[in-house]
Design a protein around this nucleic acid. Sequence first.
DNA 1: CGGAATGTAACTTATGGAGTTACATGATAC
DNA 2: GTATCATGTAACTCCATAAGTTACATTCCG
Lengths: 169, 169
Amino acid sequence: MKRDSRLSIVLHTLLHMADAEAPVTSELLAARMGTHPVFVRRTLAGLRRAGIVKSEKGHGGGWRVARALEGITLADVYEALGEPTILAMGHRTESPGCVVEQAVNHATGALFSALEEGLRQGLREITLADLARETRGRLTRGVGKRGEGQEGRKIGKRGARPVGRRSTS
Amino acid sequence: MKRDSRLSIVLHTLLHMADAEAPVTSELLAARMGTHPVFVRRTLAGLRRAGIVKSEKGHGGGWRVARALEGITLADVYEALGEPTILAMGHRTESPGCVVEQAVNHATGALFSALEEGLRQGLREITLADLARETRGRLTRGVGKRGEGQEGRKIGKRGARPVGRRSTS
DNA sequence: CGGAATGTAACTTATGGAGTTACATGATAC
DNA sequence: GTATCATGTAACTCCATAAGTTACATTCCG
């Protein structure tokens, strides 16, 4: 499956913006992200509509974060992106006539919904300020390289779950 | 996003197989699913390797469930399919040099991993026998049409979570 | 043998994320 | 006022992948 990385990108750009005094151009952001300026603008457009960022044209223009980082949760960002699809799996037919398929949909659907709600919940519990803190922590301590001194941070208050091993999926 | 419906399909076929006395042909299964026989065979191939189903060639051949439904969890099926991608979202770079991106990956990665583990856990708690029961229930009661008499069933013992509203994502 | 089934490779189609080009619009510098 | 720099967007291309399809070998039963 081709995974959507817009959330990832957008968070990255937001933190870079927050770190700068002056507006940051999409060109510079794109360079940092290893992507294309147009993709950045396109993706940030939703955030602008949501009032999370502001953009300015012309000389000295670019992108700035519009509100305090404390007041922006990842859920806000996710919504501003248009709530992209979370799960790569889904039902074959949404309203099947076959009773068997209804039963399957019912069971897996409950699971899928729980997962989606879980993600939304998790996103609601993290603010951009948390991420900025995490970033600063990585800069001072040397957590860039598997340092893992104080895992967890304040992020995702539900307590660093067991969490699976693999990531090659 | 283009969603993978193999799990959905496979569960559906398994229940149909379990319901029949004789082996069921991929052609018939495909007809029931509104898909192509080759797709069915291809998809069931993994389950055969995992010993969940058996196939027989030639006259009177077809597919049968190889073990008792009680002993087959949805997690078994999921694994037999090759553990398809669960999430439609992901990191842009897996091992970024940028500290900001590391922080983002760290935070969202924890969430994503928790979700994946959540799904696996959920799948582990449902057996094909549960689904068969659910199907029978739908046949006797009229739950096909928003009957909703006794929601929940035994499925997903964790108790029918709050669960989000929308499904149009 | 002949027909009915699976087993698979290989090709096609459809979809959607991302990259890119092109150009209009607006703001600032000079 | 014009040149320059930025965003805003439409309209492509490119690519990966789920699914559909064709083709053919293989195997089994009658």
